[in-house]
Amino acid sequence: MSGNGNAAATAEENSPKMRVIRVGTRKSQLARIQTDSVVATLKASYPGLQFEIIAMSTTGDKILDTALSKIGEKSLFTKELEHALEKNEVDLVVHSLKDLPTVLPPGFTIGAICKRENPHDAVVFHPKFVGKTLETLPEKSVVGTSSLRRAAQLQRKFPHLEFRSIRGNLNTRLRKLDEQQEFSAIILATAGLQRMGWHNRVGQILHPEECMYAVGQGALGVEVRAKDQDILDLVGVLHDPETLLRCIAERAFLRHLEGGCSVPVAVHTAMKDGQLYLTGGVWSLDGSDSIQETMQATIHVPAQHEDGPEDDPQLVGITARNIPRGPQLAAQNLGISLANLLLSKGAKNILDVARQLNDAH
């Protein structure tokens, strides 16, 4: 009898209710805020589980004197976190989706994509230029951005401005803007500013005609071990179906173009009346040469937790077992079709030249 009692006690200790789920994140304040929001949602869904947040620095956090596009290494903000995932030191990792490459290392998958916040870019102005827009900034004003995508589009749109690289986390960039006289304004992701509670610093939100956004911008991705079915089931509740389908289309477009950090590629997606609209573009580094096109596809946005595919093969690095396969494939095909259209119009040449120029500098 006593033996059975011990077995029952052991089973209770090993039951999922007692389990601590370890969540990996970057150390920056924004990353911690984003991770806290994901953990809060998981806690609400699984009140019996405990969650421990483990923060670590990544290569991208450490190399702050070089433009991201020049470092010449993929997975700048993800490699150390993936290493911890691989060694079973954490069970899942919360990322900004735009930091996750469209091809993940073997053994990993994006197990959830959370509801997207505003994906557009924002302009934050130096205190002396508050009330201005990019259009009304004085001639030769210097605007800071760490992104080739932003610089290429904005140089084309605002030729009277000069664009220079600015690195560091959000706090560091804002301090550089406010305390030094080098920059009249800087460009940042609206979602990051909003998550930090800095709505009052948003001086201008850039519309798609001015600057399309990065693939996955404004959404959070939760990376897990691809074979860890328990954790895949656990994080599945975080999937937002519309965000998922938009981001599958965007990531398929980028992957098929073979774009990345070192080339200016941008997108804009919208879901309306059962249609998914995808606009994508590529630019030369100075913005003088560009190709942009829009395509659409009829896609039914499923309700969360309709029964999805059981075999769960990944699409552009994403596993969404609780979302039907048909809409996911339709979104992926839309991204591939748009990429093929741009490639047929000469996108590869623009991107190759951009890559060579970026590598040469």
Results as ranks from 00 to 15, higher is better:
Gly24Tyr: 01
Ser28Asp: 01
Gln29Arg: 13
Arg32Phe: 07
Ile33Glu: 03
Gln34Ala: 08
Thr35Leu: 06
Asp36Trp: 07
Ser37Leu: 12
Val39Asn: 08
Thr41Ala: 11
Thr41Met: 14
Pro47Phe: 08
Ile54Cys: 03
Ser57Ala: 06
Thr58Pro: 03
Thr58Asn: 11
Thr59Lys: 08
Thr59Ala: 10
Lys62Met: 10
Leu64Asp: 08
Thr66Ala: 14
Lys70Thr: 08
Ile71Tyr: 11
Ile71Phe: 11
Ser75Ile: 09
Leu76Pro: 10
Leu81Tyr: 04
Leu81Gln: 01
Asn88Ser: 11
Glu89Cys: 08
His95Ala: 09
His95Ser: 05
Lys98Tyr: 01
Thr102Lys: 01
Val103Ser: 10
Leu104Tyr: 09
Cys114Gly: 07
Lys115His: 08
Ala122Leu: 05
Phe125Tyr: 15
His126Asn: 11
His126Thr: 08
Lys132His: 10
Thr133Cys: 12
Leu134Met: 10
Glu135Phe: 11
Pro138Val: 09
Pro138Arg: 09
Glu139Asn: 13
Lys140Trp: 14
Val142Leu: 10
Val143Gln: 04
Gly144Leu: 06
Ser146Ile: 08
Ser146Cys: 05
Arg149Lys: 03
Arg150Glu: 01
Ala152Phe: 04
Gln155His: 12
Pro159Trp: 05
Glu162Met: 11
Arg164Ile: 09
Arg167Pro: 04
Gly168Arg: 01
Arg173Val: 01
Arg173Ala: 01
Leu174Val: 10
Lys176Leu: 12
Asp178Asn: 09
Glu179Ala: 14
Phe183Val: 14
Ala191Val: 01
Gln194Ile: 01
Arg195Tyr: 10
Met196Cys: 14
His199Leu: 09
Glu210Lys: 01
Cys211Arg: 01
Ala214Pro: 08
Ala214Gln: 01
Ala214Ser: 07
Gln217Val: 01
Leu220Thr: 11
Glu223Pro: 04
Val224His: 01
Ala226Trp: 15
His239Gln: 07
Thr243Ile: 08
Thr243Glu: 05
Arg251Phe: 03
Arg251Ala: 01
His256Val: 09
Gly260Val: 15
Val263Lys: 15
Val265Thr: 05
Val267Arg: 01
Val267Tyr: 01
Asp273Ser: 04
Ser284Arg: 15
Asp286Arg: 12
Gly287Phe: 04
Gln292Arg: 09
Thr294Ala: 07
Thr294Leu: 09
Met295Asp: 08
Gln296Ala: 01
Ala297Pro: 01
Ala297Glu: 05
Thr298Asn: 07
Ala303Leu: 15
Asp307Phe: 15
Glu310Arg: 13
Glu310His: 15
Asp312Arg: 12
Val316Ser: 09
Gly317Lys: 01
Gly317Val: 06
Arg325Ser: 09
Ala330Met: 01
Ala339Asp: 06
Asn340Val: 04
Gly346Tyr: 01
Ile350Phe: 14
Asp352Met: 09
Asp352His: 15
Ala354Thr: 14
Ala354Pro: 14
Arg355Gly: 15
Ala360Asn: 01
